[in-house]
Design a protein around this nucleic acid. Sequence first.
DNA 1: CTGAAAGCGCTAACAA
DNA 2: TTGTTAGCGCTTTCAG
Lengths: 297, 297
Amino acid sequence: MTEPTHETAQELAPPPERARTITDLARIAGVSPGTVSRALAGKSLVNAKTRERIEALAREHGFRLNQMASRLRRQKTGVIGVAIPLGHDRRQHISDAFFMTLLGYLADELTERGYDLMLRRVIPDRDGDWLDRFVGSGMVDGVIVIGQSDQFERIEAAAARFLPMVVWGNHQEGQRHCVVGSALPTHLSPEHAADEIAAHLASDMAGIDGIFAASDMLAIACMTELQKRGIDVPGGMKLVGFDDLPIASQTRPALTTIRQDIAAGAARLADLLLRRMGGENTASVVLPPELVGRQTA
Amino acid sequence: MTEPTHETAQELAPPPERARTITDLARIAGVSPGTVSRALAGKSLVNAKTRERIEALAREHGFRLNQMASRLRRQKTGVIGVAIPLGHDRRQHISDAFFMTLLGYLADELTERGYDLMLRRVIPDRDGDWLDRFVGSGMVDGVIVIGQSDQFERIEAAAARFLPMVVWGNHQEGQRHCVVGSALPTHLSPEHAADEIAAHLASDMAGIDGIFAASDMLAIACMTELQKRGIDVPGGMKLVGFDDLPIASQTRPALTTIRQDIAAGAARLADLLLRRMGGENTASVVLPPELVGRQTA
DNA sequence: CTGAAAGCGCTAACAA
DNA sequence: TTGTTAGCGCTTTCAG
């Protein structure tokens, strides 16, 4: 550390008056608020010298633009809303591995393009107006809905009036809202599925020689259960997952699965949303699923 | 579906004029904007009849309050900022399983208490001012930083001036910023660690009878590598992970690990942050780690 | 190139 | 109980 001690620093340079608003800074610089605004926004029509001086003062006085005010005035927010409806299964937690992985990639994509993400977990049963409220909140320029849950109709309704929205989910014939997704139904929570799996396995396995799980996490739960019972995978029972989460290649035996290219999905979501925000009415995209053959089938 | 066709619906009830602002709605209702504001906010001093009428009109005309304006005026945002600095390891993706799991629990906690989350992924090398910009943006009432990365000093500096901030990370003697965490260094990305693990294992395993991995994901990568080489776990090599992610109990053999109670961690983060937002200067919290003995050690 | 002034949509005194 | 008014902090015409 090369900085002087606090005591010394304080003696040498008493901390400068803090400029909280653009008006504060304007007063300090002896110019008008308008000029400060233009200087900080890097507008061409402001004198280079003036700009530099204002920038220096801004640093010195720790000035940060109030984004709330700026965005209200400019009528754009620089924020993408991400809604995760938790409908048909109350117990399905937002921390579902698939959703969170998708969200991570989305954050990477959108941050790269200069947007922040506003995350909202919604329980539709409690708040029937969740989507319209979000979409009309004035807080977001566009909305991504992760998972349709049981809210298909509500999403359709919102899509009728609100263009900049894209949904991760399934496509149904003639639907209005723009989706990105593969061709299969959605996710269940592995913790709570474990019991049901156990029950099924206990009852009757005659005539079954393979399980196709609806998600990797579910497949892994199956595998554990099978191995507990001494059933060899894939010898005694074949097993195929769905998603190809990073974890799938790490299990023992490594999980054969249908890949959802989550990164690609996130990229498509981001791309489509930005185009819709630009006024384009984009079509839905079905990502081709791909079989990743490993050791369980 | 019980709704009539679009044509019929339109003939019967032409869609009402849309009320975009509180002033629109006031005009429609024949009252002043102030009254509408009070009615919609559920203030007691507005006539019940008037309130009901305004609420009905708001529904009918699809009115939603512009949160940007409301929040600017009220000087509170209802948003918690969550920053994830990606510093010392550029390749460490936001989609890191631990971070995303923590984020999921945080979202559950904070949404429950009426806050939205604003997620921002930051690369400190590219933007040295990231934390002050976030904290001073006027967009958030409080900030949670997930992981200190190599930004300890910058976080310290911000903490000197900004109270409502809590950090997930390690505690160091005499530090100023409030952390929640366990007692061990942070996470590496398993994908890229695999090669190094392989190299280490290839070179020299004499005298080593156990591996303590810095995260479960890393431990799982080790396990895969060990099993590839025909080394029995735990017979030939003991293995202990760190985190107790949901996946840890699903591996084969099940991973012995040090539990980070992520849900509890998220709850503490949320709790401390809200108290700081209320003006309290809270102390750091070290969560006691707990050994979860399974089959690998 | 810069200043003055008019709002973005909302809320909260203060009056009535 | 309601209307009027003055801003929240910023951007952007429009003048100069």
